[in-house]
């Protein structure tokens, strides 16, 4: 479950050591934008050490490495791979070939380090026009690709448009990304909301993302996490409905009825699977029945 994903600068010890207390379902150790070129080496050692020694139980760990067009990314992988982050985040993923390049090096590194092949997944950061248009190819490029994340700051620069709080300029990208991820059967997470002071704007932005089908949302400030977690948790209405669906299914099975209807609506397989997901998530959150 990743309702919220928090970016933490890879060279900031005070934050790294508290990563599991900030309220994020997953934390993203950032070796890319948050680290200046002359600190890349120190940051990857620091991130490796914190992954090795800190107890992040209960919080997912993701490392954002540098993009494959830099001289840093292979060293990033070499340093952190052994310490089992859940996912490696690949920035500026633009096409299937980008995934192939990362995939090949991850396999090589796993082989060299003697760790399980294919053990680490990839979360592709989609933040270019090309990436949006090829999102489905990227999502299906490898079994390692577990999720897509939208990066709207770089994307809007690429699109030559202004980034606004309302987010009209990224409506297409959001919808396209959700569709691509769903078609490929993987998760998809929304871009961070960048105004740290605007709690209300943040909540609205998260609600838009949830309504579009995103599984969760990334954040650059811990202040946003509570609202994100709340928005992406099953609401009581959703949960009640999910239990009703499951009750109806059970009753229908007991009575041997073939077709199940609830509130005048046919219950088909997708509705049941969605209800099961909602209940599973609620149970994980400790709010199930």
């Amino acid at each position: 479950m990743r309702r919220s994903l928090l970016f933490i600068p890879g060279n900031a010890p005070a934050l790294l050591i508290n990563g599991n207390y900030l309220g994020a379902d997953s934390i993203i150790f950032d070796l890319e934008d948050a680290v200046s070129p002359d600190e890349k080496d120190a940051a990857r050692i620091l991130v490796r050490n914190t992954l090795r020694h800190m107890d992040y139980r209960g919080t997912g760990t993701i490392v954002r490495i540098n993009s494959i067009d830099t001289g840093y990314w292979k060293a990033d992988v070499d340093e952190v791979l052994k310490h089992a982050p859940d996912l490696i985040m690949l920035p500026k993923a633009g096409c299937k070939e980008d995934i192939d390049v990362a995939e090949a090096y991850l396999s090589e590194a796993e082989e060299r380090l003697g760790i399980e092949q294919g053990g680490v997944g990839i979360i592709a950061l989609i933040e270019t026009a090309q990436g949006i248009e090829r999102a489905y190819d990227i999502a299906g490029a490898s079994a390692r690709v577990k999720a897509l994340l939208l990066g709207a700051e770089d994307l809007t620069a690429d699109l030559k448009c202004a980034r606004t709080k309302e987010g009209r300029e990224i409506e297409y990208a959001r919808a396209r990304l959700v569709t691509a991820a769903r078609a490929a059967g993987i998760d998809v997470y929304d871009t961070p909301f960048t105004d740290v002071e605007d709690d209300e704007g943040m909540r609205l932005d998260a609600m838009v993302a949830k309504a579009l089908g995103f599984d969760g949302k990334s954040a650059i400030s811990p202040r946003h996490l509570a609202a994100i977690n709340e928005v992406f948790s099953p609401s009581l209405t959703e949960l009640d409905y999910a239990y009703e669906v499951m009750d109806a299914i059970r009753k229908a099975a007991e009575q041997g009825t073939g077709v199940v209807a609830l509130r005048g609506k046919m219950i088909d397989a997708p509705i049941v699977s969605r209800a099961k997901q909602t209940i599973a998530m609620a149970e994980e959150l400790g709010i199930g029945r």
Partner: peptide
């Protein structure tokens, strides 16, 4: 400070 905010909440 993010940790301070978590505690405050």
């Amino acid at each position: 400070d993010p940790v301070g905010l978590v505690m405050a909440e």
